[in-house]
């Protein structure tokens, strides 16, 4: 069975380690916070200016001066800090943030990512995505393996305008966990019940398949 969005987030949460500062993008990445192990200490950064972001506020306790980068009302955890935008991106560019998780429209086998613009359609902007992908050392992409038309989103070369080049390290889709190695997608894990050939059939980019590919453990 292919994973649903919660399960993709659940699998990515396994990559989050004790002591990590993590920036989560909008969409599936936001869900990752719900699945991080409770026995480790992790701080979430939101690029509009908070480290130590907590859950949504209780009904009636929302504060218009406390939002995340998706403009949702949030809370601050104990030990949180607040700062301006230049400081926030200083953390990002200065590689103080350990892990960046974001969505994508396309990823290429050399680690390029496209996630901000579809020519001819409304362009909303890149927000902080270009700064994040250009600087982060550890980038995980969370996305569906194919687009709505059923076409592969893991490509030899991105067709859409790029957000960053040679930056994606790992990709978790509804079908597989893959790593960008030597300009190819190395297949690391399969979704439970999904065969290697099913993954090959919907991956346009070159795959490295070595030995038995284990199923993901959720």
């Amino acid at each position: 069975m292919a994973l649903n969005k919660e399960q993709i987030a659940q699998r990515i949460a396994q990559e989050v380690q004790d002591g990590y500062y993590v920036n989560l993008g909008i969409g599936i990445p936001t869900l990752v916070a719900n699945f991080v192990r409770e026995d480790i200490e992790v701080e979430f950064q939101s690029e509009n200016g908070i480290l130590g972001m907590g859950p949504f506020p209780f009904e009636g306790e929302e504060d218009p001066d406390m939002i995340n980068a998706g403009k949702q009302t949030i809370t601050a955890l104990k030990g949180a800090s607040l700062f301006d935008s230049a400081t926030s991106f200083g953390m990002i560019r200065g590689q103080h943030v350990d892990l960046t998780i974001l969505g994508a429209m396309e990823v290429s086998q050399n680690g390029d990512i496209a996630n901000w613009k579809i020519p001819g359609k409304m362009v909303k902007g890149m927000g902080g995505a270009m700064d994040l992908v250009a600087s982060a050392e550890n980038i995980i992409v969370a996305m569906m393996h194919t687009n709505r038309a059923g076409e592969s989103k893991l490509l030899k070369k991105c067709s859409l305008p790029l957000t960053g080049v040679n930056c994606v390290k790992k990709i978790v889709t509804n079908l597989a966990v893959l790593e960008v190695v030597d300009g190819k997608f190395k297949l690391l894990e399969r979704a439970p019940g999904v065969s290697v050939s099913e993954i090959e059939a919907v991956t346009e980019g070159d795959l490295i398949i070595e030995g038995d590919i284990p199923e993901m453990k959720l």
């Binding site: 690029e47 935008s85 390029d112 250009a134 080049v165």
Partner: peptide, 27 residues
């Protein structure tokens, strides 16, 4: 890019005429 926007403000504020950033390279 958002970080570039913030830094272009900060640069104007602090007397830095220009700066280098990796954000947006190759795009």
């Amino acid at each position: 890019p958002q970080g570039t926007l913030a830094q272009r403000c900060q640069a104007a504020k602090t007397g830095i005429p220009a700066f280098y950033t990796p954000a947006g390279y190759g795009t």
